[in-house]
């Protein structure tokens, strides 16, 4: 997986020390042709990239600064700098204890929906993708077509009938109502089948069969390890997709105690109209909920790239 290796190198390149030299030596193919770049070009390009970076960082910067303020300072002092009082810890305490500690519960709910949902969804879609890639059987094309159709149908279009279906079996307003629909990742199936087609050699499976390994054993013991990069990508993709989902929990859940963090924060934000103190709770709550995902995204960035390449190159 040359892309993944490449990503590792480029991540290391981000250390400013000796950067120019390294870039000139070339850590990848793109680097070579630019060996003779003029320093003015470097400054210009870096300046453009820095300005763009400012744009991407402004809301994050704003929330970090303003989570430290009191409600009065939030309105009275400039949003781009700290207020009179630094009360980040008080604000965090207020967020964690508001409504009898509902915020940590929302966080745990989000972890549950995203964690359990993405683990199972990944296992299901990798197994199915592997089956589609490595077996020739009747109905294979049909399944492919069905799933392709599923990818193109907007998820929100199914939310309404799903609501009626779930309410007729009485599982709306329960954890299941959000968890069950999160278990399916058609995108993951495609990624897994493309990846399995390339990364799991038929000879490997044949050798396993000769050794008397069962079909499920072949998948679990021989294929899965080969599929690790795809698994990580699907897992991350699905985790973020569930974490970000808004319409499904909005439609399914009525009880605040079952809310994921997104819906909960939205509920707080909606109260700011009448109760300005909720501005501060929402701001600090937003900061707290951005941190874990931001870390996840930054640390695992290279996996996105590895998997997505497979999806786009061959897809």
């Amino acid at each position: 997986m040359s892309t993944t290796d490449n990503a590792t190198t480029t991540t290391e390149r981000s250390k400013p020390l000796g950067n120019a030299a390294k870039a000139a030596q070339g850590d990848g193919r793109a680097g070579n042709r630019d060996a003779g770049r003029k320093p003015t070009t470097t400054i210009l390009v870096t300046a453009i990239l820095a300005i763009v970076a400012l744009y991407f960082l402004v809301p994050v910067y704003w929330v970090v600064i303003n989570a430290t303020k009191s409600t009065e300072d939030l309105f009275a002092t400039s949003g781009f700098w700290f207020g009179e009082n630094f009360q980040l810890w008080e604000n965090i305490k207020a967020v964690l204890s508001a409504n009898g500690g509902i915020f940590p519960r929302w966080g745990l709910n989000s972890m549950l929906y995203s964690g359990v949902g993405s683990l199972l969804a990944t296992y299901f879609s990798v197994a199915a993708g592997y089956a589609l890639a490595k077996y020739r059987f009747r109905g294979r094309k049909l399944v492919y077509g069905l799933v392709l159709g599923g990818v193109l149908v907007p998820g929100t279009a199914v939310a309404l009938p799903l609501f009626f279906m779930f309410s007729s079996i009485g599982i709306t307003n329960t954890y299941w109502a959000v968890l069950i629909p999160s278990l399916v990742s058609p995108f993951g199936l495609f990624l897994a089948s493309i990846y399995a087609g390339a990364a799991v050699p038929d000879e490997l499976l044949e050798a396993g069969r000769i050794d008397g390994v069962g079909e499920l054993g072949l998948f679990h013991r021989l294929a899965l390890p080969q599929l690790t990069p795809a698994i990580v990508t699907i897992l991350l993709f699905q985790f973020v997709a569930i974490w970000n989902n808004y319409m499904l929990p909005l439609v399914m859940l009525a009880d605040e105690k079952l809310y994921p963090i997104t819906l909960g924060l939205d509920n707080w934000r909606a109260q700011t109209d009448r109760l300005p103190e909720f501005y501060q709770l929402t701001t600090t709550g937003a900061l707290l909920s951005v941190i874990p995902l931001a870390i996840l995204i930054l640390v695992l960035q290279r996996f996105w790239r590895g998997g997505l390449t497979e999806g786009s190159v061959k897809g």
Partner: peptide, 25 residues
């Protein structure tokens, strides 16, 4: 990718960061 820029890793991470922030937030 042009390798004309300094700190590409930092910029790439910065640009990608918002993807991890839910639409609601």
């Amino acid at each position: 990718e042009s390798a004309s820029a300094k700190w590409p890793g930092f910029f790439r991470a910065t640009y990608f960061l918002p993807y991890g922030i839910p639409g609601v937030i």
